[in-house]
Design a protein around this nucleic acid. Sequence first.
RNA 1: GGUGGCGUGGCCGAGAGGCGAGGCAACGGCCUGCAAAGCCGUGUACGCGGGUUCAAAUCCCGCCGCCACCUCCA
Length: 476
Amino acid sequence: MSLRLYDTAARAVREFVPLEPGRASLYLCGATVQAAPHVGHIRSGVCFDVLTRWLVARGYAVTFCRNVTDIDDKILAKAALEGRPWWAVTAHYEREFAWAYDVLGCLPPTVEPRATGHVPEMIELMDTLIAGGHAYPVDGDVYFDVSSYPAYGALSGQRPDQMQPAADSEGDTRKRDPRDFALWKAAKPGEPSWPTPWGRGRPGWHLECSAMAGKYLGPSFDIHGGGLDLVFPHHENEIAQSRSAGGEFARYWVHNAWVTTSGEKMSKSLGNSLLVREVVKRVRPVELRYYLTAAHYRSMIEFSFEALEETAVGYRRIEGFLARARERLAPGEVTGADLSSARPPEFDAAMDDDLGVPQALAVVHETVRQGNAALAAGELAAVRRAYAQVLAMTDVLGVNPYAAPWDERSALDGAATGRWRTIVDDLVAARIAERAAARAAKDFAAADRIRDALREAGIDLVDEPDGTRWTLAEPS
RNA sequence: GGUGGCGUGGCCGAGAGGCGAGGCAACGGCCUGCAAAGCCGUGUACGCGGGUUCAAAUCCCGCCGCCACCUCCA
């Protein structure tokens, strides 16, 4: 079986056949860097990180391009509001996004181009479109002529004659048709601008993605991704531009669903943003990632801290098994190249089926259950197998507690390395020994005092058949 | 007006014609000084009404409810 993906354009699951065997090219509409990322923004990053990881796991050489939109109306408005230059605003929020992607374990894209760095490519594209009769300049603006592209609306299922006229088109006599969209906006006083054959101005939103996708991935590439709300108009317009300029453009369109709170789409206008920076103060980043990953990427997530906590308990179960297995196995058995190929076939089948992460996680949990049973029975060969499988599977999902960036951060990690770990291990071992003596003497009050004191210090003690283990307590 | 989606047990969340995914919670048991963890076991769920079928959560028809997109959106 090979990978199948739901293609928005086809409204069906299609077998993924890359343009070039063994290679996959992917463009993702990244952030407009005008505010700090909330959970909904980062879900997109996480979804496509899982897709990328799965393509890599399936042996594809992946070229992943995720753009940064660093010029648009909202950025200019934000700059005015914050009283600092627009480029200071974009630099600031670009760092916020980079931090959020990193803290949630999203692998860095192959290339992360900025819109403002690709004005020459945009001018070239507009030249081509104007020459081909698909665009027209008016007083420094450049508009795309929707009527010149008969397939307009095919991606989103919109029929141009049924669409509501754009809110900003009233009284706008420069457009030939209210549905035409701006490729380029003429400079207004005080706004940043770049020189073009049609006068100074700045990029329209849609043009940049066509220009950058073309530059880095070529006129044809495999997958174009983004949030569901980008289907129309953004992706529709990208298609119109790029195809009118002669390219095939994206061959598969993949869209992730959004995150809602209280049944409403998360957005700044509703004032219910859950900033990544705030959420990871309440839960570990890996748990937020697990929560965002656990739902199918095309299902809406109704965000709540209660649901997040509950899901996190399930993740801790996985971590718990891994930590116990790791202690039981010989050091040479817990690392090794063969671990990556240890995924159960059912897991791969689930992932191949339009990234069926929920089913894939069912395989993970089933393996954990078997592993725990093997641990209890002392069947080390089975423990080793389950350990390798769980590691390989969590790796694909980006939640392997022993892989970057979680390896140094995992609160439940019973085997993390490093000097602090060694030091704490020695100190706690002494207290565990004291407590063992107390228990042997049936002085349970003394034994419980030691356990309570350690708990107070943030260390949980767990008695197991072959001894007492300690873990860092979950922050409460 | 146009387009698309959703409704599954106490909760989260898959599945898309035929043996009840998985997790969380709950209950019973094993283990245990206690606790925790772990293991074993326990559920007659698919918005409503019709229909097709040997068989429907899944297909068809009609309703009801919720949500999103239609030039700011991840």
